[in-house]
């Protein structure tokens, strides 16, 4: 018989990482103050990790703990996302007062710098940051 514990844990891990990317960006962009969602994520992570200790089997315990620890990571990731927006490494939401302040400071941007195709690694070895601007003649 097949052992499905690994499959459940793989799903929990991948979905936790997916939420850590997509959900944290969304949450940070919508929150005027990141502290309340951070506290909520830390408490939810704590509840899940305590639940893992009392789980009836390894699979449920593992899923609870993987998701719980991912939520703790996400709480920390909210701070990093805030820093990315402030430095123009992630798009700012002009409707968010915190982001509006970063935009006014001049470093933040409305566009996503990562929303582009990478250069072909076998054609050009010069980073775009060091390329001369291309001017149409």
């Amino acid at each position: 018989m097949l052992q499905t514990s690994g499959l459940w844990l793989a799903l929990a891990t991948f979905l936790s990482i997916w939420w850590g990317h997509v959900g944290v960006r969304w949450l940070e962009a919508k929150s005027a103050d990141i502290r309340p969602p951070m506290v909520a994520l830390i408490i939810a992570g704590l509840i899940l990790n305590v639940a893992a200790l009392f789980a009836p089997n390894v699979t449920i315990g593992g899923v609870c703990s993987v998701v719980g620890i991912a939520l703790w990571w996400d709480a920390f990731e909210l701070v990093r996302q805030d820093r990315r927006v402030r430095h123009g490494h992630a798009p700012a939401n002009p409707n968010n007062p915190r982001h509006a302040r970063y935009l006014a400071e001049g470093k933040a941007t409305l566009h996503d710098p990562l929303d582009r195709e990478p250069s072909d690694p076998f054609v050009d070895t010069q980073p775009t940051a060091h390329r001369k601007p291309e001017i149409a003649s």
Binding site: S5, G6, L7, L9
Partner: peptide, 23 residues
């Protein structure tokens, strides 16, 4: 491979490792 391992704990560790490589 995690599906073919008898022990749930080892299977879980393999599942987590596999998912992290996919990510």
């Amino acid at each position: 491979l995690s599906l073919l391992v008898a022990d749930a704990g080892w299977s879980a560790l393999l599942g987590v490792t596999g998912a992290s490589f996919i990510w």
